[in-house]
Amino acid sequence: MSPESSRSRLARYAAPVIIGVAVLALWQALVVAYDVPKYIVPSPLAVAQTLVADWALLGRSLAVTLRMTLIAFAVAVVLGTLIAFVFVQSRWLEASLFPYAVLLQVTPIVAIAPLVIIWVENVEVALTICAVIVAIFPIISNTTLGLRAVDPGLADLFRMHRASRLQTLVRLRVPSAAPYFFGGLRISSGLALIGVVVAEFVAGTGGHAAGLAYQILLAGFQLNIPRLFAALVLITLTGVALFLAMVWLARLALGRWHESELAR
């Protein structure tokens, strides 16, 4: 490895870490220096202590949020991909259905969530449905775009060799769509988490199936700000973990051939 590339790797990984540590240190210093009460802004250390102390409660909520997020994400991916495949079967079908997919996308989930929660008895199922509604659009639009983004030269080649519809789909359209699909996954995974959290805020129900959003809501009412921050940290970490998992997946699938995944 050349010195330049190892230096650039260092910059890529070390620089954000240094920034993060510096901000946390400054935060800690300011809170201590100005003696800010922890029910207004807790210090990073206080948040960390709370995270450990309340782990029984927060860990359970994390599991609930994570489960709903993953189920919603999986449903969005499967359903969204199927819808995209239906869309590309005919322009006519896409033209008549796509506006409704957009409709779903532009309507704020906060506005739909109360209805879904009323209609669906099981709260966890209701929240998952809300998250699916939020997360499905990038999958539909990206996969549709990808399935259509076929090199016209290759399309000609397939046509010249009298490829069947199925051969064209499997050997040409699906691989062409892969980079778009993985781009969609990246956006959608984050949206699934956001969908679950927002919907739970609206639902506001607790009990044993309480997710992280409920802990934030409750901690706010109780002015337990360190716990609010701790729950917030867990949500953020979950989002980052999902994003990194998608990046890794894309690299695994596209690594050798696609520009977006080549080592820079």
Partner: peptide
């Protein structure tokens, strides 16, 4: 005019395409 190869397929698989089809 362009090579018009499938970027996701290795050279051998690209050449084999007409036979596969």
């Amino acid at each position: 005019q362009q090579a018009t190869l499938m970027p996701w397929a290795r050279v051998a698989a690209n050449v084999r395409l007409p036979l596969d089809l």
